[in-house]
């Protein structure tokens, strides 16, 4: 399994429309609820996206390109960040 690492900071998935999830061909990103309380969560759904399945990342960089907040960094096995044109 390729050892790409994916980092996300300050993600507000509801605002951006889950672009990284739609772009990722390997389903690396998982939306997790922000609140711990289901009753509150139902009234106001708040999710953030975490790279829970980063083991499947092949470093294509699609997520970096589509992220509205430039919050995603993909690190190649050597530690260098994947750059997209």
């Amino acid at each position: 399994m390729a050892a790409y690492r994916v980092k996300i900071r300050d993600c507000d998935a509801v605002a951006c429309g889950y672009r990284c999830q739609e772009a990722c061909p390997h389903g690396v990103f998982l939306a997790v609820p922000r609140t711990r309380n289901r009753a509150r969560h139902a009234a106001e759904p708040r999710y953030r996206v975490v790279p829970r399945f980063a083991a499947f990342c092949d470093g294509c960089g699609e997520c970096v390109r589509v992220c509205a907040a430039d919050a995603i960094t993909v690190l190649a096995p050597g530690g260098a960040a994947v750059r997209v044109p």
Binding site: L30, A31, V32, P33, R38, R52
Partner: peptide
């Protein structure tokens, strides 16, 4: 069902890591 499948998937995928 009640707790929410999103919580369940979050929890299990965290634990299996």
């Amino acid at each position: 069902g009640g707790w929410g499948i999103d919580y369940y998937i979050d929890f299990t995928s965290k634990v299996t890591q």
